[in-house]
Design a binder for these strands. Sequence first.
DNA 1: CCCATTTATATCGCACACGATTCAATCGTT
DNA 2: AACGATTGAATCGTGTGCGATATAAATGGG
Lengths: 161, 161
Amino acid sequence: MPDAPAPPAPSIAAPSPLRLEDFLCFAVYSAGHAFNRLYRPLLDRLGLTYPQYLAMVVLWEGDDRTVGELGERLGLESSTLTPLLKRLEAIGLVSRARDPRDERVVRIRLTDKGRALQGPACAVPAELLAGSGLDLERLGRLRDELNDLNAALGRAEAAQG
Amino acid sequence: MPDAPAPPAPSIAAPSPLRLEDFLCFAVYSAGHAFNRLYRPLLDRLGLTYPQYLAMVVLWEGDDRTVGELGERLGLESSTLTPLLKRLEAIGLVSRARDPRDERVVRIRLTDKGRALQGPACAVPAELLAGSGLDLERLGRLRDELNDLNAALGRAEAAQG
DNA sequence: CCCATTTATATCGCACACGATTCAATCGTT
DNA sequence: AACGATTGAATCGTGTGCGATATAAATGGG
């Protein structure tokens, strides 16, 4: 799979062999929406959307990246990133400029305002943690499992794509 | 958490206390995109998008549901579902009709064409499984962990929302 | 019975997300 | 030097997603 129905449900002559709860992909899909909903009110205070926040996290890790590098890190296409980065530019958090050494490349840099947002942004995950009462160690294991899954899905895509 | 950076990374005077790999929410976000990309070529043959496929799975489980019931099951708002269901209607897979007993309610029913799609659709998860070479038992555990996480995130949302 | 409230769906505006395409700049080969 | 192929980003069209709002139908209190 990824999504084969669980054996525990025998489904003897079941009318539908497809049960939504058995889909790993649906669990992932739902968790994505749940995170989005939980992050929204916190990120609203920073004036960021959730994907914009992730892009800023990458930029806080290291400045002066190309659109392609950001896309590779985030798993997004230029057709998604270009408008997103233009919005970050419009609110004054980043600058976008063609690299004079290679005019095909656009380099994304943090502005002072963008850098200043890092402090408040660091508080966000901790706030979420506090509000959820979840076991940190277990969440870490889950994250590692998901990253393994992502690697496997990436290989599957490369193999069949 | 949900997203606290892992303890294993001490980040002694690290320039950024936020590392993308440490985010559970990013692992979920990426897995969602990965599933979408893997499903796309298979679902293209059925003429469905990934969310449309999930909606059809719910309808194959049981027909004649209201928009609200589908939204509850899928975790989607009417503002998302209404256009999606209109597209399913446009390609002839479902019918949408006001309930004569309560004209506020719209009932979604499968057409013959929609029911006929169930057979081919059942093959899709198995195809994905075959193409990925993943351990079924481990995937089941991961799904269960994610569903626990979803429940916890739902509680957190209800508490703070 | 009437009006205020609630409920179910639809509409609108904004922001992803991607595939297909386009365009300019660079690279490779000759 | 020239030109075809490749690369990096942007653009376009389609389809989610959601919050805010709208609308119509049902409900309830007086």
